[in-house]
């Protein structure tokens, strides 16, 4: 019986790491650019589909793990340079509407390219087995997912805390003027950060593809979950996104064994309760 819970908690951690990757991208973009990306869920599903295509064409999941986030990031970079940068000065409402338009376009184009029915992606061959620990057995891919996402999280943390780029992003999140004064091309920093944040959503899409497949209508659901995470964890906070992402993943997973239909519902209910008790989130300040 205990094993069931351990199993679900591990599942939840994996799910939570995916949620973290999505939300941290959203948060990173918002922190520096003060820009809300409602197309984030769409980029996630694009990541899943590119993973599907790469795996179908080459049979190589590892290649897709590299290529799909890069491609999604590149697309984001192009979009930033051509469109997004023209709307930074507009109120958030307009930014939301434009990115909503982008999300619709990505969704419809995905259906045109890959059809309206979801695609399943096979688990990479290397990770098809299960890991045994005494009586406890756990799928290898899910373990890999937790480990790999944790590595990405560490790398991202090092990038933000230990590099010049990270220092600029953090300084820019406080005040873009400071960074401009430092002689940095603020627009280049914006493009790169936007691409990086979106690539993280793409990466999350790849990692989740062997579990959930690629589905054109996944965007809104993913966006909803990402919002729950940032409402609970606070926008612009790496630690908040990690803690809230894991929490949401574990809650959803545990609920799945207790009340399967209600597991998705629970995370929204949890968010509502958090907002009622602590309007500024668990880690937020007033």
């Amino acid at each position: 019986m205990l094993n069931v819970y351990l199993f679900q908690i591990l599942n939840g951690l994996g799910l939570g790491m995916i949620y973290f990757l999505i939300s941290v991208g959203l948060t990173l973009i918002f922190g520096l650019l003060n820009f809300v990306n409602f197309a984030h869920g769409a980029f996630f599903l694009l990541g899943s589909y590119l993973c599907y295509t790469t795996v179908t064409l080459t049979g190589n999941f590892w290649l897709s793990l590299l290529l799909a986030p890069l491609a999604v990031g590149l697309l984001a970079w192009l979009l930033e340079r051509s469109l997004i940068r023209r709307i930074y000065h507009l109120p958030h409402t307009f930014q939301i509407l434009v990115t909503l338009g982008i999300a619709l376009i990505i969704q419809e184009v995905s259906i045109m390219l890959w059809g309206p029915v979801g695609k399943s992606v096979p688990t990479p061959e290397l990770l098809r087995g299960i890991v045994r620990l005494g009586h406890f057995a756990y799928p290898q891919y899910r373990l890999f997912l937790i480990g790999f996402a944790a590595l990405v999280a560490v790398a991202l943390w090092l990038l933000l805390e230990r590099t010049r780029f990270g220092a600029l992003v953090r300084a820019g999140s406080e005040s873009t003027e400071t960074v401009s004064l430092l002689g940095t091309n603020i627009f280049r920093l914006f493009s790169i950060t936007f691409a990086l944040g979106v690539a993280l959503a793409g990466l999350a899409g790849v990692l989740s593809a062997p579990l959930r497949g690629a589905n054109p209508f996944l965007g809104p659901e993913i966006l909803g979950v990402a919002f729950v995470v940032v409402v609970i964890g606070g926008m612009g906070s790496f630690g908040g996104a990690l803690a809230a992402g894991l929490m949401v993943g574990v809650v959803q997973s545990l609920m799945a064994s207790l009340w399967p239909q209600g597991s998705s519902l629970m995370i929204y209910a949890a968010m509502a309760v958090v907002i009622l008790l602590r309007p500024y989130g668990l880690f937020g300040r007033a």
């Binding site: 809104p220 659901e221 966006l223 909803g224 919002f227 729950v228 409402v231 998705s264 519902l265 929204y268 209910a269 968010m271 509502a272 907002i275």
Partner: peptide, 8 residues
Amino acid sequence: LTLALTQM
């Protein structure tokens, strides 16, 4: 929040 509540 409005978006998440719709999902809910």
